[in-house]
Design a binder for these strands. Structure first.
Ligand SMILES: [Mn+2]
Ligand SMILES: [Mn+2]
Ligand SMILES: [Mn+2]
Ligand SMILES: [Mn+2]
Lengths: 254, 254
DNA sequence: TTGACAAGTTAGGCGCGGCTAATTAACTTT
DNA sequence: AAAGTTAATTAGCCGCGCCTAACTTGTCAA
């Protein structure tokens, strides 16, 4: 019954597809999975049987498909790998969205956990470190076209450094009071200081790394504030309004 | 006859293994290929048939295996992808050699050409740009352990910048005369200014990107100067002494 | 109520890439 | 030269993941 064997790349893609379909529409229909993965319906049925044998989805013929506990966790894991790699490709390597997406989906299956962590950390490093910052990486574009114009690089470096010092000087003025995650606007970063949620609701979030001390960035807020899309530890995550209200943060200075 | 279909990850690994065995020992024996890939001998025979059908190796039962023209090119391509990814993992993500190696071998099959180019360029960018340089990336290590100690980052940035300016001031003093590739010592970088080789000998090198204007770095030189291991365009390459004598370079300043 | 039709499943087939076991070829020894 | 040893090949099997074709099931409109 258990079955903890490694998932094949193919099955991981099925999990991923189901995850996204459940999120977009309410349920994951066989036909939609098939379309998404460019595969015939019969193949989907086979995959569902395989996932069901591994107890990752609850599946009986003709009935609706749902994730099991471990199934949802496994799906989240794939989605995270995909999104972390894509982020790296887009933000650091400056690859266009579409290419980054397909590349991420191809490589997500062979990247190990420690290596992924490195990718995530590196992306964060470049974003956070004053010498770097995503702005700096744009110099990479220039570098790609011309051959290593060092003068230009150097000038850019100085400008960047000055900006950082400027910002730092102003930081004392900023408020550092606790506020709800939902009150942040897109682009703002903050650190989690308290999580007050029902057990059931918080499980998923904790699994995604929503713990005290973690830095989060709000990516976008849907029309009525539900859901809020945030990024933490390099991964994207959708948080329902209710949940966002139970998460208290403190804004970073920089 | 033709058969230009995409190579499977498995067949690419066989090509890679054969390539390295031919380079290390003179020939690639079935048993050695099997050992290297953790596979049984019977599987190797099957793979050799498949490669032979695609005209990538010359193979008749019980006889020695050699690459065809296109086979060697295909093998080189895999080896390049492997080495470029590994380089990125080691130099930028600061992963240990062994992990980098296995990760590279896992991902080399799913990375597209344009994305690989990005990896290569980015690694070069970090190495060449004065604001960065491999030395800088070591700050990443520190960043991984502590959470974004920005003060430290900033200090490091200043130091680095000063060093660059220092070096730059001295550059006028350096000689810029043409010399043979073989005369460089490990660690030195130079730009190719002239290639004087027999057609047959130069084909392989040109395929690897050994063209006028390209930057090369000498990695190591074997006891008697043969072969010379160099890196160009982010890839590693072994050059025979004879060949190295026909390649003229000019040292870079920085 | 009852077709008609779309969605889903089952059955069976195929290519790939491993494997084992049995066979054959190529070398070594005696 | 014959026997023994190691390397390589063949034959045949299996699991995976896709496919097509034929079938069930569910739904909705006449
Ligand atoms: Mn994928
Ligand atoms: Mn994916
Ligand atoms: Mn490989
Ligand atoms: Mn490899």
């Amino acid at each position: 019954m258990a079955a903890t064997s490694e998932l094949s790349a193919s099955l991981e893609d099925y999990l991923e597809a189901i995850y996204h379909l459940v999120k977009e529409k309410q349920a994951a229909r066989v036909k939609d999975i098939a379309e998404r993965l460019h595969v015939k319906a019969a193949s989907v049925t086979g995959a569902l049987r395989a996932l069901s044998e591994r107890e990752l989805v609850n599946y009986t013929p003709y009935e609706i498909v749902t994730f099991t506990r471990s199934g949802e966790a496994a799906a989240l894991d794939v989605v995270r790998r995909h999104s972390a790699l894509k982020d790296f490709f887009v933000k650091i390597l400056l690859v266009d969205e579409a290419s980054a997406d397909s590349a991420a989906c191809a490589m997500e299956h062979s990247v190990t956990r420690p290596l992924l962590e490195r990718f995530v950390h590196f992306t964060q490093f470049v974003e956070d470190c004053p010498r770097a910052g995503t702005k700096w990486v744009r110099g990479f574009s220039y570098y790609c076209d011309h051959d290593s114009k060092q003068d230009n690089c150097e000038k850019c470096m100085r400008t960047n450094l000055d900006e950082v010092i400027q910002k730092k000087a102003n930081k004392g003025a900023q408020a550092m009071t606790e506020q709800q995650l939902g009150s942040l606007k897109p682009g703002q970063k903050a650190k989690i200081v308290r999580v007050a949620l029902a057990d059931a609701a918080s499980r998923r979030l904790v699994e995604m790394g929503m713990t005290v001390g973690t830095m989060v960035e709000v990516i976008k807020v849907a029309p009525l504030g539900d859901p809020v899309e945030i990024k933490l530890r390099g991964y994207h995550l959708s948080v329902r309004k209710k949940e966002a209200e139970g998460i208290y943060v403190e804004q970073a200075m920089l």
